[in-house]
Design a protein around this nucleic acid. Sequence first.
DNA 1: TAGATTGTTAATCGATTAACAATC
DNA 2: TAGATTGTTAATCGATTAACAATC
Lengths: 210, 210
Amino acid sequence: MQDKNISQVVISRLPRYFRYLGDLKDEGFERISSGELSKRMNVTASQIRQDFNHFGGFGQQGYGYNVNYLYEEIGKILGLDKRHNLIIVGAGNLGQALANYMNFEKRGFFVKGIFDCNSEIIGKKVRGMTIMDTKDLAPFIKENNIDIAVLTLPKQGAVEIAKTLVSCNISGIWNFAHCDLEVPDSINVENVHLSDSLMKLSFKIHENEN
Amino acid sequence: MQDKNISQVVISRLPRYFRYLGDLKDEGFERISSGELSKRMNVTASQIRQDFNHFGGFGQQGYGYNVNYLYEEIGKILGLDKRHNLIIVGAGNLGQALANYMNFEKRGFFVKGIFDCNSEIIGKKVRGMTIMDTKDLAPFIKENNIDIAVLTLPKQGAVEIAKTLVSCNISGIWNFAHCDLEVPDSINVENVHLSDSLMKLSFKIHENEN
DNA sequence: TAGATTGTTAATCGATTAACAATC
DNA sequence: TAGATTGTTAATCGATTAACAATC
């Protein structure tokens, strides 16, 4: 189904397509042309067709794309037909918020455990789960088929924990720590640098000031 | 100091430079060459020099860049020398986490208020602030010189609130809602689509599977 | 069949990298 | 001065857009 080596920039557009197709589905659309979709999404129809064609032909000449089919296929490309078991490492404000934010389950992402290294909060409960000690991370990952670790802790801790995760051969790291992690190529890292994002906003605000 | 129309891709790299320069500063470096920095950051030295030169010459031939000076200058470019007053709209898990996450203050971002439309939580306290009714948003923005609104609410609500914010002529919107906002060009939007990010990670995990 | 719209190739545009003259 | 390294121009690479033949 999938071409080898899809460029990063194409990948980063897929979730947005998925989101718009979900909306179209909810609104009762059965088919959509690249032209109509391009108007909705503010991108060129050319780009839409090019992007979709990286993964094979989803459309039909003279008709366009079937909304349901396209939605399903992009979901599969994104791996949303698979189940993922997550753990959250770092039970601070953000970690707890993500643990409680359970729209992820709808897409197949299940939080199986939450960890912290602070003995004052270890043992407390978050969303029915007892906060565990990060010392016990490695066996938990193996026993519970964890494939994604969410890092919501300070950067010093994150670098440490990343080493453990590498040794556990975790599939993916969703990194909210304010640092870049050095891991082997076989381990996938997706960074969410909130402070970087806020700085970008600040830049834009002041860009046209002087 | 600033060229007109810096490309998005350059802007998005600035916070990362800022982060690395902060680290270098903390480690006691006084100067750094584009070559050394390129090794640390895993980008080409050419790119570093090109990027910095969009904003004028920060370096000196034969010497390199002064770490402190460069750090300060990039901070100014990012608007971090200015004070920003924020409000958080949506006092759910994520909103409360961001309200409590006060590393932002260090960079000049001050949370001045938190709002929600749910009458059950209006009046409760988060980090010493009483949760206010979103109905009272507009006057609060004007009276408190709010320039950034953080949207941490469901998409239906976000679209509504965005209209209000536009009418208040807010400078920036930091949007965590799972939708794109349609606002005039004069209003800067920075999106943080967490579910998009998680989907990208999922894609990478399954990319080389079959 | 005629009209619509895709899939795909070719042209354009922009971003990255390489190279080197300027200069500290 | 000689060495190092920037600032900047030129070459390359990749991504976007335009165009159109294929086809439903």
